[in-house]
Design a protein around this nucleic acid. Structure first.
Lengths: 189, 189
DNA sequence: TACGCCATGTAACGGGTTACATGATTCA
DNA sequence: TGAATCATGTAACCCGTTACATGGCGTA
């Protein structure tokens, strides 16, 4: 997966592994984060497969830059991937919900505390996606001379994140209410 | 992660790897699916670590059953895990959104077609979570003599899935509208 | 003086996925 | 007759995570 993301960025603009990490951070980080170590390794694989080539650009006072560019083969691989119609849902692994599923033996107050902590995190996430990410995206769009439709699409991706964060907030509120309601009925007054 | 889920099931009732696969399918499958091969391997690890023990129960006409039970050490490990307060959001990797992010070069109709296919899948998913899963959960609850709070909790987990599926539907509708709106403005009439 | 940025990687580990292998019973 | 169910596993692979290693420059 990361392979195609890197290819996608490199097709717009040649850059280093370090730059790619920054590009990811200011765009798809919330749907596909990546460590530098993995980026470097994946670039090595792409180069082995002939989908990218690299050129070392000497620098003084700091490490030389290794600038990667996508090849024709890289563009073909990327276009092939983009062209695939997705006909199955990817399983969404949600560790917290597994944990929650087994929490029946825990004190209800403990569960509510946990939910409030998560609420904070999702709230921050939602606000970041709603207020900070648009700025990053605008910068990114300005830096990458882009297609007309890109800003719309990037904003749609951002919206998906925002909406899901909001859904978590709604779910948490609903769930806390149900837990408190059940606790109230168990020991009335 | 699977390790703890297996432990969680085994603490309620001893069973085989095959049974565990069925238990997962009728409960947390949509947040944490697992292949049989992985279940067997993980059970092996758990047994190595002394968190479960197994006993072979001979059968005729079919393979012997290897029934696993959680040990005291298993219960302690599980309780320790359950007791941890989660203070960070797990990154949610969404391959489709990565793909979508890079789709600016694709024909808008192609994107809309893709979104409609996904809409169908999420709709089916939502309906399963809203209508079929409650039945499975009820069966599962009946089979496992349970704590009072379990049904509420299990239903909350189910609700999370349902709400997120609904959010996908909303996002897709919104996104199709925006794409069509943009296409309409690009070539008016 | 200390921290963050720039810039490169390697190595080991963990855990989820896919493929392979076997075989009787039951039900449509 | 053929597909689904019961029931066990092994082996290889892929890829994301974590830890380790290095080091100058600019800024607070």
């Amino acid at each position: 997966m990361l392979k195609f993301a890197l290819l996608g960025f490199l097709l717009r603009q040649s850059m280093t592994g370090y730059d790619l990490a920054a590009a990811i951070r200011s765009s798809i980080n919330f749907v596909w984060p990546a460590q530098l170590s993995q980026i470097y390794r994946t670039l090595g694989q792409l180069e082995n497969d002939g989908l990218v080539v690299s050129e070392v650009v000497p620098q003084q006072g700091r490490p030389d830059r290794r600038v990667y560019s996508a090849t024709d083969a890289g563009r073909q691989a990327f276009d092939g991937w983009l062209g695939e119609l997705v006909t199955e849902l990817d399983p969404v692994r949600t560790p917290f919900l597994v944990r929650f599923f087994f929490s029946g033996t825990r004190a209800p107050e403990e569960m509510v505390t946990q939910l409030r902590v998560l609420r904070d995190l999702h709230l921050r996430q939602r606000d970041q996606l709603a207020h900070e990410l648009p700025g990053y995206i605008a910068e990114f769009a300005a830096a990458n001379t882009t297609d007309d439709r890109d800003p719309l699409i990037w904003d749609a991706v951002r919206r998906a994140g925002e909406m899901h964060a909001q859904t978590w907030l709604d779910w948490i509120d609903e769930t806390i209410a149900r837990l408190e309601d059940a606790a109230g009925k168990a020991q009335p007054r």
